Amino acid sequence: MAKITGNEVEFNTLELNLAWEKAISLENVDPNKIKMCYICKFHMLKENYYTDKTADILYWTVDLINTKQPELFQSDNLIAIHQGCLIFRKKPNAAKRIEKIRKVKWLYDEEFHQ
């Protein structure tokens, strides 16, 4: 279970893995290494998890899919997104938006990112 201390939330390894699994997959890459942020549609590398020591807006962190849910930190309510994209979230419940994005086939542009 996530630990809340002050203004910070610390997730355990299981919760981090569950959030990563919920993130949008790209068809042509290994989902254990690269996923897509549902806000900006740019890729995330699993190895680049956001911490205070590695503060980069393109590093990923855990977001809540539905912030109105009574049990916020349930495993089905966690998703990985870029740290910098947290401020661009539009609605308290992003479930419909995420489902619409999942219906599209997303590809990683290997040529551009070399």
Rank of each mutant, 00 (worst) to 15 (best):
L72G: 07
C85R: 01
F88N: 15
N77K: 02
E21T: 13
I87N: 09
V62T: 07
S25W: 08
Y38C: 03
A94W: 02
K33T: 10
N17S: 13
T54S: 14
Q74L: 07
K46Q: 04
E110R: 13
W106T: 09
K53R: 10
K91H: 08
I87D: 11
D56W: 10
S25G: 06
D76Y: 09
R89F: 04
I57H: 03
G84Q: 07
N28H: 03
C85K: 01
K22L: 03
S25A: 11
Y108P: 05
E21W: 06
A55K: 14
G6F: 00
A94D: 13
G6R: 01
Q114P: 05
T5Y: 04
K33R: 07
T13C: 01
L18D: 14
Q74K: 10
R97L: 14
A80H: 02
R97Y: 13
L72V: 04
C40Y: 08
M1S: 14
K103T: 09
K100R: 14
F11P: 03
K41R: 15
D30N: 14
Y50R: 08
M36N: 02
I4M: 07
A2F: 07
A19K: 02
Y59F: 15
I65V: 15
W106V: 08
L58E: 09
V29R: 03
W20V: 06
Y108N: 03
R102G: 07
L18Y: 14
K105P: 00
A55H: 12
F112T: 11
E21K: 15
A23H: 00
C85G: 05
L64M: 08
T13P: 00
A23Y: 01
A2D: 13
C37P: 06
I101M: 10
A55D: 15
M36Y: 04
I24W: 00
I24P: 00
Q74T: 12
Q114T: 15
A23K: 00
P70T: 13
N66V: 02
Y108D: 03
L64I: 05
L45E: 14
I79H: 01
A94I: 02
K91S: 11
L78I: 05
D52T: 11
I98A: 04
N93Q: 09
W60I: 05
R97W: 10
I57W: 00
V9M: 07
K68A: 02
S75I: 07
K100C: 10
K90T: 13
A55R: 13
A2M: 11
Y50N: 07
L86I: 11
E8A: 01
E99D: 15
L78F: 06
T5V: 11
E27D: 14
P70Q: 13
T13E: 11
G6M: 03
H82S: 09
E27L: 05
I24L: 11
K53F: 10
M44T: 03
I65E: 04
D63W: 01
H113I: 09
V104Q: 13
V29L: 05
N17A: 14
K22N: 15
P92S: 12
I57Q: 06
P31C: 07
N66R: 01
I24R: 00
L64R: 08
K68Q: 10
I79R: 00
I81E: 08
W60R: 05
